[in-house]
Nucleic acid binder design. Structure first.
Lengths: 231, 231
DNA sequence: AATTCATATGACAGATTCGTGACGCGCCGC
DNA sequence: GCGGCGCGTCACGAATCTGTCATATGAATT
């Protein structure tokens, strides 16, 4: 679990130092970048396990970097934690929609930071790096956010993709809407629980035409379950 | 998960009201204290599941209260969420060092508040242990909330599932209707005792087609028993 | 056997929970 | 800017569950 490499992308030196200090004390290996261009190179060069990305950078903003990486096949599933200055509900949602895995708001305690880094790394661990998940012929391709069924291939939206990824990593188990929000949307996102229903619906609709019907099961009063057995 | 009791320690009435409203709407039970002394009594008296503690209280400060509770063995692991007015790095660190489990900064959205309360409560809950019960070929898997006989799965409603779970955990023993209401329905639920009969009937009807007949036994004048021995 | 009492059963209406289509909003590529 | 797309929310209806009652059944007692 340790010995993971974290890249800090942050233009303000004091914050950079504080981040480095906290992470190194938690025995992560750390490298830094203070602008977008350096960050691009560092990611390509060092293949970090996680990026701590400042929201506001001079020149190219953090959001833009995040977007770039998400689009690039090689870095599509690179865990990103956004570091934002203000507490802004909209920023939160926007950031996570861009594909960030979590975020911390300045100022933050070092223990909080380390905890979040660990949480995100842990979450992305079971799926393996770019290991393609296979489940009863359902095949998940992390790079292109597509899922292939036999020869057909289905394009999923980001959220649907993450939802399916979560399900395929944790089949045969009931999860409450709350748990799913935690693990698929992120631990600090506040959206209605019924939002889960809607995305379940979208996922079902995407998979059904390809013969995958009845695998996303409703457990009334409890949540949902991904299962191969018939209900 | 619900029905948890939250104590609000906050001297400003409007904020207190807002907190109460948000929490009650999320079906928590709520009590209030507007000063440290009342708070001490309330904690000792009501043993709340979580405390929302204002940072700045007249007289004894919130930090002092937190410290007290942490020192006391009885309240050492009482979850505390600090409510702070300003965002201040030092406060944050100090608060978390004092053992606060989380904090919210005013102003905050009620959904955020409720989410944090839930998150903290969930964290302190016992970890989800995977439980599989097997009883004479009748199989109950807690993780997937599924009951099966061989390869056939038994379709149960939520209450029937809980009832069967209870029976399988406590076989060969007679329980009165009152005891069953306590343990299956919950302690603060008032329903007619005869309701148990109806659900017993529904459970029997669900199990019978799978060859499980006569295992839910009536003990006239006392209650019911789940048993493999013939009566 | 008649009576009495506890339980079994079927029916029902209210309450919950879930599925689904629609809508507005923000972001992105053009 | 414009149109498309993904997302979160809402409202409505459908499906299911739940507690209660009325009545039937059966067992124990007299």
């Amino acid at each position: 679990m340790q010995n993971k490499h974290v890249l800090i992308v942050e233009d303000e030196a004091p914050i950079r130092d504080m981040l480095r200090f906290a992470l190194e004390r938690a025995s992560f290996s750390v490298s830094e970048a203070e602008d977008a261009q350096t960050a691009r190179l560092a990611v390509a060069d060092q293949r970090p396990d996680l990026v701590l990305l400042d929201w506001m950078l001079p020149g190219v903003s953090g959001t833009e970097l995040a977007r770039e990486w998400r689009r690039d096949e090689l870095t599509a599933d690179l865990p990103i934690i956004l570091v934002t200055a203000r507490v802004d509900e909209d920023d939160r949602v926007r950031g996570l929609n861009l594909g960030a895995d979590d975020y911390v708001t300045k100022p933050f305690s070092s223990s909080e930071l380390v905890a979040r880094v660990r949480a995100v790394l842990r979450r992305s661990l079971p799926g393996g790096e770019d290991e393609t998940l296979d489940w009863h012929g359902l095949n998940l391709d992390a790079a292109s956010q597509r899922v292939s069924v036999g020869d057909a291939s289905v394009k999923l939206g980001p959220t649907e993709y993450r939802l399916l990824h979560f399900f395929m990593s944790n089949p045969e188990r009931v999860y409450s809407r709350e748990q799913m929000l935690d693990r698929v949307w992120g631990q600090n996102v506040y959206v209605e629980e019924r939002t889960v229903d809607v995305h379940i619906r979208r996922l079902r609709r995407a998979l059904a035409p390809h013969g995958f019907d009845g695998f996303v099961q409703t457990v009334r009063g409890s949540g949902y379950r991904f299962s191969s057995k018939v209900s």
